[in-house]
């Protein structure tokens, strides 16, 4: 995909994400919007997946260890054709296949069940290790929240990834600076993620995680003898001004007319891009 096509795909993911959350009236909007650009590049350009055959063993895999980014993941999968887009409007309704947190047994295309923070890291390690042991030529992409990195399990999994040279696992850290209670730096200062991952034995870099061109370049790089960790410098709530500016934007509960305003903002950006 060209940069413009990827930008368009990212905006479409944002639009579908907001529509999805609007259907229930509340949801994890901030951390969903921060990862839309990464999802656009992964599913639009990088990953070898087949929506007609979601369980193909040698597909590339994606694990959102920040399981609450479910709405953005579902929006991406719907746009890729894994299931009809209307199903997004059942988010968190009784009996839905689209719960707040990603569930591999409910949603076609979701590769791993996550939600208890930290756990997706080890699960992704297991997926990548299992693929490697079976000689499959595929990659697992792991998205970890910056707040999630409070969890010790994240660092156990990071140590294992580098120590066992699991180069078919790519770590993405969504450094959107905020967690539920406020700024990550106020709650549990993580210091320098890039330096941390380098010290853990990764080939680490930091990019603008809301810039599809930078994402594409970083994700196109092949790992050598060290696994890759990409720190995504992102904005929580990216793409919707009021959400970006809201102090508490982890989960928001607003009226339909407010959602409609947000939807109009994204549609305006789409129209401008296509003009």
């Amino acid at each position: 995909m060209t940069t413009k096509e990827l930008e368009k795909f990212a905006l479409e993911i944002r639009l579908a994400t907001v529509e999805c959350i609007k259907s229930r009236g509340f949801g994890h909007i901030g951390g969903s919007l921060s990862v839309c650009d990464a999802l656009a590049v992964l599913y639009g350009d990088i990953m070898n997946v087949d929506p007609k055959n979601p369980a193909k063993p040698d597909r590339d895999k994606f694990v959102s260890s920040k399981g609450h980014a479910g709405p953005a993941v579902y929006a991406t999968l719907a746009l890729k054709g894994y299931f009809p887009k209307e199903q997004l409007l059942t988010l968190n309704q009784p009996g839905t296949n689209f719960p707040s947190h990603c569930d591999m047994n409910k949603t076609p295309g979701v590769d791993m069940t996550t939600g208890s923070l930290g756990q997706g890291t080890s699960e992704a390690v297991g997926l990548a290790l299992g693929d490697k042991l079976q000689g499959r030529n595929c990659t697992t992409y792991l998205m970890v929240g910056d707040g999630e990195a409070n969890e010790g399990q994240v660092w156990e999994a990071a140590m294992f990834t580098a120590a066992k040279k699991l180069t078919n696992l790519v770590w993405l850290i969504d450094w959107n600076k905020k967690q539920l209670d406020g700024y990550v730096s106020d709650i549990l200062e993580p210091f320098d993620f890039e330096e941390k991952f380098r010290a853990f034995g990764f080939d680490a870099c930091t990019i603008d995680g809301n810039d599809v061109a930078q994402l594409k370049e970083a994700l196109s790089k092949k790992a050598t003898d060290k696994p890759i960790a990409i720190i995504l410098d992102t904005v929580k709530g990216k793409g919707v001004t009021e959400v970006e500016e809201a102090a508490g934007n982890h989960s928001m509960n607003v009226g339909a007319e407010v959602f409609d305003g947000w939807i109009e903002e994204i549609k305006g950006k789409l129209a401008a891009l296509e003009a």
Partner: peptide, 19 residues
């Protein structure tokens, strides 16, 4: 290594990959 939570999660991931 001495990382039981990670080990259990890896086991689950391996299982998801068919092991």
């Amino acid at each position: 290594g001495i990382a039981e939570a990670n080990m259990a999660g890896i086991a689950a991931g391996l299982s998801a990959a068919g092991m």
